[in-house]
Nucleic acid binder design. Sequence first.
RNA 1: GGCCCGUUCGUCUAGCGGUUUAGGACAUCUCCCUUUCACGGAGAAGAUCACGGGUUCGAAUCCCGUACGGGUCACCA
Length: 513
Amino acid sequence: MKNKRVRVRFAPSPTGPLHMGGVRTALYNYLFAKKNNGDFLLRIEDTDQSRYVEGSEKYIVDSLRWCGISPDEGVGVNNSITDSGPHSPYRQSKRKDIYRPYVEKLIRSGHAYMAFDTPEELSEIRDKSKKAGNPNWQYNSITRASMKNSLTLSAEDVNNKLLSKTPYVVRVKMPHGVEIKFHDEVRGWVSVNSVNVDDKVLMKGDGLPTYHLANVVDDHLMEISHVIRGEEWLPSAPLHVILYDYFQWERPIFAHLPLLLRPDGNGKLSKRDGDKLGFPVFPLNWSHPETKETASGYKEFGFYPEGFVNMLAFLGWNPGTNQEIFSLEELVSSFNLQKVSKAGARFDYDKARWFNQQQLRIRDESLLIDEFVNSIKLKYGISIQNEWAKKALYLFMDRAEFMNQIVTDCYYLFEDPVDYDSKMVEKKWSLNAQLWLKDLAHIFSKTSYSSDEIEASFKNYLNSNSLKFSELGPVLRLAIAGKTQGPSIFTVMELIGKDISEIRINNAITTLN
RNA sequence: GGCCCGUUCGUCUAGCGGUUUAGGACAUCUCCCUUUCACGGAGAAGAUCACGGGUUCGAAUCCCGUACGGGUCACCA
């Protein structure tokens, strides 16, 4: 184990879109792999065909790609939905035949057995047990003696059932009263008595393995060194551990990550929370293939992958320094499992937005300009030049957390105001204001219409008429932008130019009369 | 309910036996900057480290118990 190559895997089930908690698990796996010059694999755990949702695999691959954490091996390498790597296939439904010999091996060694109890029989016994006051009946080291399985039935009976193709499942034979202990990288030693672990189904009636068997076999075959997954797996970790022991395989190192909790207090963040909580829970937009229900994603919401990833990384981990803004590369070099916290992390959308705002600040200028130019074209149908775009962009950037916010906020660079902030009109607009504006329009027209000159002549006008800025400034802004807050109105006027500025001043005078 | 995991400002967290009058960030508030709104800057407020016992010269840090919270108990993953 010591000098083994680090190989980790993210193993989602294609039952729908990946939510942010899943993305974080993938991210930590990726960071850990890269930090240790190891491999990050994506394996699809689709052993339950009844829960398969069309499009989820592509969604998972697309999401990881958007975050910049694409796998080195498995499904989604080179952005392809097909898989590649030395252990192909990486979809458990395609590995069906691989598992059977291992199940048989377990049966031969006495660590597993066939059980012929039907689902109906089992649910009946559970119901009965519940009524009798036991809310949780388990198929385990005690109860299996009274069930229909290869341990209780005669060899002949078993053979007959097999010959008559009676459906059966294979269950693990858990030892009775053994302390199962394993070390978890984030939690330390975890210990459970085997009486509390039931005889989990390893292979289902349909011949497909359950998650528990498939994940252990695949992790071993794929030479996974560390299993990094969510805390919801902690209760079944003892089962996995004992399976490794039964197979006489070296156990991987386990690390169970704290859960992402809902901001409103109770429970883990789940897919069903959708947009109900006022923020996306998915990385990308998702629309359900059948119900056509849609859920919004961080990407479409306006988050940069860098901001999203940075935010996610800090939900349950921190570098131990005061630095909070990290690039993916920086995260890779700082990451380690010892710094992962144990308690669940409540998601805070305010902080999430702040992370994106910080990305906006440090983002490469040419990138920002491109994004801005394209968005303006898309939203307003107007093509703008880079020089002009740069000025407009930085004029509005300070008060935005997202690029799309900038694009929305600067609308009056492209559209004349249709209405005016009525409260401010009442407060600042007057007959005098109209006269002053007329004067100003005339005065401005004699300048070069640069921000500086407009401002200088404006202040000049204030002086010579003994006016205060607060008397005239808002009036001018109202005429130009329709509202009274925003960036320098003089720069806005420079950007929209003399003609439009004059039209707006005239419009305001006629409209607000 | 059984089992497992967890518990430091409202939130994310630093802290891994003495350097702590418990540090940072988000959010909140104040002031400064400013034509406004932001940004930025300076500051304030905010945690008896869940509670109770130990261990120790000394505990947020180690141990035990209690409470609370969460996870999990399928032929799902």
